[in-house]
Design a protein around this nucleic acid. Structure first.
Lengths: 190, 190
DNA sequence: GTGATTGCCTAAAGGCTTTAGGCAAATCAG
DNA sequence: CTGATTTGCCTAAAGCCTTTAGGCAATCAC
């Protein structure tokens, strides 16, 4: 029996790719086994169960996204940084819808904890870094973190769901104007 | 064999309640059959399949939500209307998390179409009604519809996922301030 | 009442998850 | 290089969910 060379990390990677192809919710231990041309039970040596697999995929995605966000923010501040951060999220979600969906699989926190939570913290810190350009005190800064997170995540979710497909202007046109509006808002936050 | 009195509508209702109890994704034809103390196959006379059931639940929820929104907006305008609308969504989601999740089950559109789409249109119209208080032209109005939808839906999603639970201030305190910020923003939309 | 309809049932096949236990391939000790 | 150990993938099997097909009985129309 030739060995395929499975491992937790490879399964997480392949699972992430599969998620982008068929949707995060459709990622199943069985489908992944088929992909490797291997018996289903074989995967259970590398992954505790279906939830564990999904948590690993979520962690891969959340970490990738944090890496890209950090790279995009390097050397930017203010409005510029806000657009860069927002675009990274939106572009990532459009390029990798399954992975993006995985990042919101919060059950991952209770299953894997450590790495997932760490990646989550990196995201928070990046948002706060952007907000440093706007001179907000507490609790305004936390409110602003929540506003940005909500709007960016909400827009991406609705766009991916097709909610903006049947009307003008295109989703791509509204986006920068909405981010600009947020910039203006932050600049004059009471 | 005593008849329980099943019907498409009763299944949708019971399914909605079940969704609030165990989560929309966990609503299953089997679970619903258990709830009625009936054989699984019996439900398939009233519901085409699992997707059809979920689409019916989604339609129930989206319609309920539109009803409540319409009632809340009666006699209000401007900032007042904005808060009322936003609160209806958030309160509904907190009271009925499963139903709220169902409203975002966009596959429903392709399965049931008609009623679901009609309810969706009612929501759009309600948002535009609120925006009438802000004097926006096109494409600003569409941008604003998307901004409101994104922020409100995003906030609710993140709050329900527990993203705001581990920091101060409470999710309930940030909410009105964020809606107020949106009001300010709309008032000065370029 | 009788006949037609409709509601719920039994049966069965197919898919996903998960556990238990086994053989063989890779790896390591000496 | 050989033998021992670990590790990877396998077969088998049980449990739950979905969906279809076909049947009997309760209910309704007249």
């Amino acid at each position: 029996m030739a060995r395929v060379g499975l491992s937790g990390a490879r399964l997480a990677l392949a699972g992430a790719e599969l998620a982008d192809e068929v949707g995060f919710e459709q990622v199943t231990v069985s489908a992944l086994a088929r992909h490797f041309g291997v018996q289903v039970a074989s995967l259970y040596s590398h992954v505790r169960n279906s939830d564990d697999l999904k948590a690993r995929i979520a962690t891969v995605a959340l970490t990738e996204l944090a890496d890209q966000a950090a790279a995009a923010l390097a050397g930017r501040a203010g409005r510029d940084a806000l657009h860069a951060l927002a675009d990274v999220y939106r572009d990532y979600a459009r390029a990798h819808p399954g992975r993006y969906a995985a990042t919101r699989h919060t059950a991952a926190a209770s299953v894997l904890g450590e790495q997932y939570v760490a990646a989550g913290r990196r995201h928070s810190e990046l948002v706060r870094a952007v907000l440093r350009g706007y001179d907000l005190g507490e609790p305004a800064q936390t409110d602003a973190v929540r506003l940005l997170g909500s709007t960016i995540h909400g827009y991406i979710t609705l766009e991916l769901a097709g909610s903006f497909s049947h009307s003008e202007p295109s989703a791509g046109e509204s986006w920068p104007r909405i981010i600009d509006a947020l910039d203006t808002l932050l600049r004059s936050w009471s």
